[in-house]
């Protein structure tokens, strides 16, 4: 019985391993059907191609080379030329999935490029595929969703309130967007500080944002507040920043100002400078003393010689 169990385990293990190797290293990179059907949320245009070209140089060119020239990097599996037939055969959704998730040496761009950026990239790649016809842009079920909304941000210095207004423009008509999610951040040295969960717009497409207490600002309390549409709510990713005096006035001491072990030579800790210099000085003085003693031996010897030569 025991033997049977261990045999079953072994078979299971082998099949599992087989499965893993197949799914990891198989030539084909299979995209789930629902993802493969995904389409862009906007119509590819000259602008989107131009934007995509710029993104391609920064993010893709080092491995995929210049499209149509086949000068991609020699990696295994080969990155291939984006203008090639292999790329042309992919659906937009498949391409989006692969850029988003990556695999093996192909990096994941989920956190690096926004969804719009990724679609711009695809529109650039498609510009090399003759005979490509873009499928109808995908529209979500929400009213107005799929359109790229715009945003204004205002600060009223009397009431100390930040007001966000989200709207779409069609035929020069502004219509407010209800239920759009807006994320708030404060600009910091390294990246942005998130101020918590997204806030939804009301019926009029407006958010009266209660800025939280206790956020550090500059010496006068100024800080940069950033509001950004949450892309997943389907209205694009419009972003606005505003300088507001809502922070706690804070004196920022430069990280490199105080003396520290990791600072430059002239800002070394005093105890270190003292102990190093005094130790070196002490040892050197001792050595100089020894040298002088050797000189003294010489003089003493000379004195003996002189005494001898004085005596007849």
């Amino acid at each position: 019985m025991k033997r049977l169990i261990s045999l079953t385990r072994l078979i299971l293990l082998i099949s599992l391993f087989h499965h893993i190797t197949i799914s990891l290293f198989a030539e084909d990179w299979i995209v789930p059907p629902d993802k493969a059907e995904k389409t862009a949320p906007f119509v590819f245009s000259k602008e989107s191609v131009e934007k995509g070209a710029e993104l391609f140089v920064k993010n893709c060119q080092s491995c995929h080379g210049d499209p149509t020239r086949g000068n991609f990097a020699k990696l295994d599996p080969t990155p291939e030329d984006p203008a090639s037939e292999k790329f042309k055969e992919l659906t937009d959704g498949e391409m989006f999935y692969k850029i988003t998730n990556g695999r093996g040496t192909m990096p994941q761009f989920k956190m690096i490029l926004s969804e719009d950026d990724r679609w711009d990239l695809i529109s650039y790649i498609r510009s090399f595929h003759s005979g490509y016809i873009q499928p109808e842009p995908e529209l979500t079920s929400m009213t107005g969703a799929g359109e790229r909304a715009s945003m204004t941000i205002l600060f009223d210095s009397l009431s100390k309130m930040v007001t966000i207004s989200v709207y779409t423009v069609k035929n020069d008509m502004k219509s407010p967007v209800k239920g759009a999610e807006v994320l708030f951040f404060v600009k910091r040295y390294f990246g942005n500080l998130s101020l918590g969960d997204a806030v939804r717009t009301n019926e009029e497409g407006i958010i009266s944002y209660p800025f939280p207490d206790g956020i550090a600002g500059d010496s006068t309390g100024q800080l940069t507040l950033i509001a950004q549409l949450n892309e997943s709510s389907g209205y694009g990713n419009a972003k606005k920043a505003i300088l507001v005096p809502l922070g706690v006035p804070t004196e920022w001491i430069s990280l490199t100002a105080p003396r520290a072990m990791w600072n430059i030579n002239f800002k070394a800790p005093v105890w270190l400078i003292l102990s190093y210099s005094l130790t070196v000085l002490g040892v050197l003085l001792a050595l100089v003393y020894i040298m002088l003693q050797i000189r003294k031996i010489f003089y003493l010897g000379s004195a003996v010689d002189d005494a001898k030569s004085d005596k007849p």
Partner: peptide, 12 residues
Amino acid sequence: VKWRGTKAQWEI
């Protein structure tokens, strides 16, 4: 260095 083996030299 003119070592003459005097007592003073040994002390040094």
